[in-house]
Structures are given as C-alpha cells and as structure tokens.
Design a protein around this nucleic acid. Structure first.
Lengths: 236, 236
DNA sequence: TCAAACTATGACATTTGCGTGACAATAACA
DNA sequence: TGTTATTGTCACGCAAATGTCATAGTTTGA
C-alpha cells in the first residue's frame, strides 16, 4: 500500500506543526487545515485517508464537520480521529455516536498518536478489503469470489477476475501495460506486450456475456491510445 | 469449542479484578476495560465472545456503549450481560430494549455470574447452530449426527459430515484447500493436495444419492477454479 | 490520402488445475 | 478374529485457462 495521507484540522498552528512533523517521521503524508471550512474543501479535494480533527474548533464546528462528513456518501467512509482537550466521558460518548473512529486526548505522545492512527487505518482497511466492489449493477465480491451483473453470475478466468478487481479498485485512472502487468501478474514475470490486450479483450467479452443489461459494461474498460487502459464510469 | 473470551467493563478496579479471577477459575479468558471508549476499542480489536458491562459507568456511557454495539453489524451479535448496582425494574426494562441479553445485580456471587454467562453463551451458541444447518430440504442435525434430504437419511463418512457441516456454517464464501484442511482436519496433519478433491467428490456423491429431489444438492458444492471451493445456494 | 503506429481479435499449442476410479492401509465393529 | 467402512494417495484423463502469434482493423499525423 502506498503512503497514507492524513489531514490535520486544528486551529493552533503549533499543534498542527507538531503533529505534522510526527506524521512525517512515521511515514505518513500530511496536510493541514485551520478551520472546518478549509478542512472540508481539503477533504473533497485531496481525499485524505484519515482526518485528525480537533474537537474544540472555534464555534464548536469540529463536531459539525464530523457530522457533515458522515452524512455525505463521498466522505462517509473516511475515518476520523478526534483530538480532545480534556478527557471527558461526555465528549467521548457524544463523539462515538457521531461515528468517530477513535480519540486521542491532549496532551498526547507522538507514539500514541501514531499507534492510534495505524490501528484505525488497519481496521478500516480490513473492512474495505472484504467489501464488495460495485459499479452500477456490476458487483465483485472478494469473499465469495464472485462477479455478478444484475445478480446474474458472470463467468471469467482467474486472471480476468484479478484484472477486473484491480480496475474496480483503481477507477478513472490510466494504467500502462507495464503497470497493469506489475499489479495483476506480479513483478516477476515476462509477458509479451500484446498479451495484456488479449486479457483485456477476454474481460470485455465476459462483461458483455449478460444479455439485456441497461449498460454496456464492456465499454467501461476503455482503451487510451498510446497510454494503456482505464476503467471509467464516464464515457470516453 | 475453544476457550471463550469475556470482556469486563467496569470503572472499579476491585470489581474488575474480582470478576477476572472468577472467570479464570471457571475456564474463561478475560480482558478488561475501565471505560466505554477502551471497551469499544477492545471489542473491535479482540472480538470477545461476551461483554460484561457495568450499567453505571461514569457519564452513563454504559447504555450508550450497548446501544452503539447493537447498531454496528460487526458487533451486533456479541452478547452483553449488564451489571447493575441495584435491582431496579426500570433499568431492566430499559436494558432489554437495548438488546441486552441478561442482567446480574450487584452484589453477585461468582457462582451466579458464571452460571449466567454459561447460559447466555449456550443460548447464543444454540441459536447459531440451528440457524445455518438447513438448506432447502437438506438438513444436518449436529445432535443426532444425521443428515437428511427431504427427511430421507443420507449416508456419508465422518469426514464428509464434518466437511458439510463446515460448509453449511460458512456459506457463500470461498475457501482454499489449505483453509478447508485447517478447519475440517485440524492444523496438524499433512494432506496431499488432491485429497481434498476426493472428499469433495465423496460429499457430492453422497448429496446426489437421493433420487428425485427437486434440487441437485451436489451442485451447491461449487468449485472455484484457482481459489478453492464454495457452498452456495446461488448458481455458479 | 498514405504510411506508420497502435490496438483488436481469432486461432492455436501448451500449461495448469480439477475430477475420477482404483487401491492399499487403517480404523471400527461384531 | 474376520469383516466392513473409512481414509489418504496415486495415476490418468479432461477441460479450462493461458500466453503467443499472425492478421485485420483503427487512429494519427504528415
């Protein structure tokens, strides 16, 4: 997994800096915001993997932000760790009910903060890993190792299965054949260049195998001439 | 069944220790938490089989925790026994509506506590057992150690019995041969790779042995090429 | 409009993984 | 003790999956 990005939301610059340095040292990328509004913009824009949110933002907007993030589907799955000034059970309870994932009480040690972050990220990761990937009525369920379109099972080989899984987890991005090979086959094989094309074709064929669907799922696997392939919900 | 883990949630260290010792003596493993937050983390992390929860945690967070546990799918099935300071009908009623499984009123005897725990665990256990072990007209009764299809007895060896039981308890999931071996044979044996196949075949054969059924039960044991086997009601 | 560069596709040989019948060793049982 | 059921292994056959190639089709830019 690549580097996780953490958004720090706190009105005190000193704390932002301190946390930022801590996270950098722990191998995270960090961005900062000093108020709820900037934070929200940054979240939409940069899609951080986790938000460190000060409970006591001026105007009590910390909890407001948390609530808002949870309400919106786009941001509902971004984990939040609250930073609370004092260890108050009231806050904790209220925060838990807002869907906050964990707490760190100020003052906190860098070690503790990093540990909490890692725990939350791992927990979320496990949850996501076994979650079914879905695009329209196309569904890939890693647990049952099954692909369905409109609940009808779709037949394909193991390689096409991995290929589709890769695309579903990385939509709207173009990947070169080399990159696809590394990600789907693993780095230690040599493949003829055209081989990727053939598997793309097989995947498309499998996605077209269900008759009478409203959407042509094969068309979601798009060729980007000179660059590679892309899985996208938007027409090319 | 392996050792059950009980999580003790109480703010008084003396009670935690006392209960912990009691549980150890009764053959349970126990972990402790002194507040709702730590408890929640421990539950996510350690997945205890039962939670002993003090009703009167500071800030009234005991009931909050119970409510929160019930809301989340991951924790909704973990049984909760409430520890109440005084025997108040109000508490009991309120607790029941939160989905609490039982009550123990302080002060309680170790003997009573253990009895309650065992009762709840057994109840939950029975519920789990009797739930998954029927598919259409195929029935597996763990007690009488019998399998029937449309009330007609099905003959199979002990290994196939365990295999079918495993599948019935874990439907819609793919298992690798290694995983099946660990779960059905136990971890300390070495089996030739093809051996699993042979037992799958014997199981399928047994499931086909009843003539004239509406459903081909053998077909529920599905091969997932390159991944393992899956028991599923849905066609592959 | 043409050539060059790139991609799609059908066909094919090879590899891989699974199903199956047979068999010997072992365990269960009368 | 003899008899039967159960179990694990093996060898073989088959079908799916895979990678490659040759050919056809498409796009791009001069």
């Amino acid at each position: 997994m690549s580097e996780s990005t953490i958004l720090i939301v706190d009105d005190e610059a000193a704390i932002r800096d301190m946390v930022s340095i801590t996270l950098d040292l722990a191998g995270f990328a960090s961005i900062s915001a000093e108020n709820a509004h900037d934070a929200h913009v940054a979240i939409i824009d940069k899609k951080p993997d986790l938000v460190l949110l000060d409970w006591m933002l001026p105007g009590g907007s910390g909890i407001e932000l948390a609530r808002r993030l949870r309400r919106d589907d786009l941001t509902a799955n971004i984990p939040i760790i609250m930073l609370t000034a004092k260890s108050s059970e009231d806050n904790k309870v209220q925060g838990l009910s807002e869907g906050v994932d964990d707490y760190v009480t100020k003052p906190f040690s860098p070690r503790e903060l990093v540990a909490r972050i890692k725990t939350v990220l791992r927990r979320i990761d496990d949850k996501q890993k076994n979650k079914a990937l879905q695009v329209f009525d196309l569904q890939l369920d890693p647990t049952s190792h099954r692909i369905t379109i409109e609940d009808k099972p779709v037949e394909m080989g193991p390689t096409e299965f991995r290929l589709l899984k890769f695309f579903l987890m990385n939509q709207e991005k173009v990947f070169s054949r080399d990159h696809i090979q590394d990600s789907v086959w693993g780095g230690n094989v040599y493949l003829e260049e055209r081989t990727i094309d053939v598997h793309i074709r097989r995947l498309r064929k499998a996605l077209s195998s269900i008759e009478g669907t409203a959407i042509d799922y094969a068309r979601l696997v798009q060729t980007v001439r000179g660059a590679g392939y892309r899985f996208s919900v938007r027409p090319s």
